[in-house]
Computed example of a mutant assay.
Amino acid sequence: MKHLALILAGSLALLACSKEEPAPEPVRPVLSVEVKSQDQANLGRFAGYIQARYESNLGFRVPGRIARRAVDVGAEVEKGALLAVLDPTDQQNQLRAAQGDLARVQAQWINAQANARRQQELFNRGVGAQAQLDIAQTDLKTTQASLDQARAAVDQARDQLDYAQLHTDHAGIVTAWNAEAGQVVSAGQQVVALARPDIKEAVIDLPANLAERLPPDVVFLVAAQLDPGVHTTATVREIEPQAQSATRTRRARLTLADTPAAFRLGTAISVTLSSAVAPRIELPLSAVQEVDGKSRIWVIDMQNQTVQHRDISVVSRTASHVLLDGGVQPGERVVSAGVNSLKPGQKVKTDEDSPR
């Protein structure tokens, strides 16, 4: 009996100890983000490219068949460089014809000049008639006018022959060819595009509704897509007044604050639009828990590695983020995933910042 009593007493003592020391709750790993105050509103990011501000579409001043192209796309050319040549046969024939007409009229002018001089001498000796002298002088003036016209025709034919060669009027880079060797082109038809590389700008397409409500303090950050470390700021130079019917976008041309060497013509860029706003706090939508019609978040006590919930007021929300007007301070850390399984005072193990 004595041994039985001792055994029962020991069992009761063990039961008492087990009730006084419950098993600790497991530490829960969570993802978290640090609360940061934002004073810039992101209006969007758009793809674009670098383009020359000034680009000329050049063509021949006379019609003809292109005999050859002297340069290819991407070539850098100096002022006066030869770009393309037409078959000069027609222009050469016109020049020969004009030169033949000039030679004929020159012969007529020499005869008219000699006749007028002879009639003047006869009239001075008193043996010539005034009427004959007037006719000779009139023929001389008429022939002189024909001679001037023939000389102008020769000059024009020489110009037409020169126009069969297409030269640049400024240094630039060939960006496009719109005609090939052997193709017949008309006068003024666009044959080649020539860009001036000294002044460059960024070109993007903006949604029509955004282009119409751009804030006056909007900031454009322009970065190279292949190397975002190469970047600069820009301002709006021009926005097309009408939206493109297919995409409902309006093309915007931006003046660069400076032009990094990596910003070559045709470089793909990414343009981020932002605007200054009153300081605000933005959190991932996954950080917000809805309980009884109220919104709350779980704030981490970094010293004790525990969490406590806190009611917040949501100003607006998107598919991925919420905007708060307070309830949390910059520098605090908030659970960003797994909020529905947390309890007040629960131990947690934080990980690196999750994507915002």
Rank of each mutant, 00 (worst) to 15 (best):
W109H: 13
A81T: 09
R280S: 14
H170F: 03
A150S: 08
A129I: 01
A195H: 05
G338H: 01
E240P: 05
H321A: 06
R310H: 05
A262Y: 01
R237A: 12
D139I: 01
S32T: 13
S286P: 01
H309A: 10
Q160N: 15
H3K: 12
T272Q: 15
K347P: 07
L15D: 03
N115G: 02
V105G: 02
P26A: 15
Q51H: 08
L86T: 10
R104Q: 14
G44C: 03
V174H: 08
V185P: 12
V71A: 10
V291Q: 12
P29C: 02
R264V: 13
P355Y: 03
A181K: 11
D292L: 10
A176G: 07
A202D: 05
I110R: 08
D325E: 13
I312S: 02
L210R: 06
H167C: 00
D198S: 09
V299T: 07
R317Y: 00
E78N: 13
W298H: 07
A211F: 02
V315R: 09
R61C: 00
A13P: 09
G44F: 03
S11Y: 11
G327H: 00
A234C: 07
D258S: 15
A84I: 03
L273T: 12
H170D: 08
M1N: 10
V271D: 05
S313G: 04
A70K: 09
D227H: 13
V191L: 12
V288R: 05
V328E: 00
G126M: 07
P279Y: 06
Q160V: 09
G64Y: 09
S275W: 03
P29K: 09
V307A: 10
T255P: 00
V185S: 09
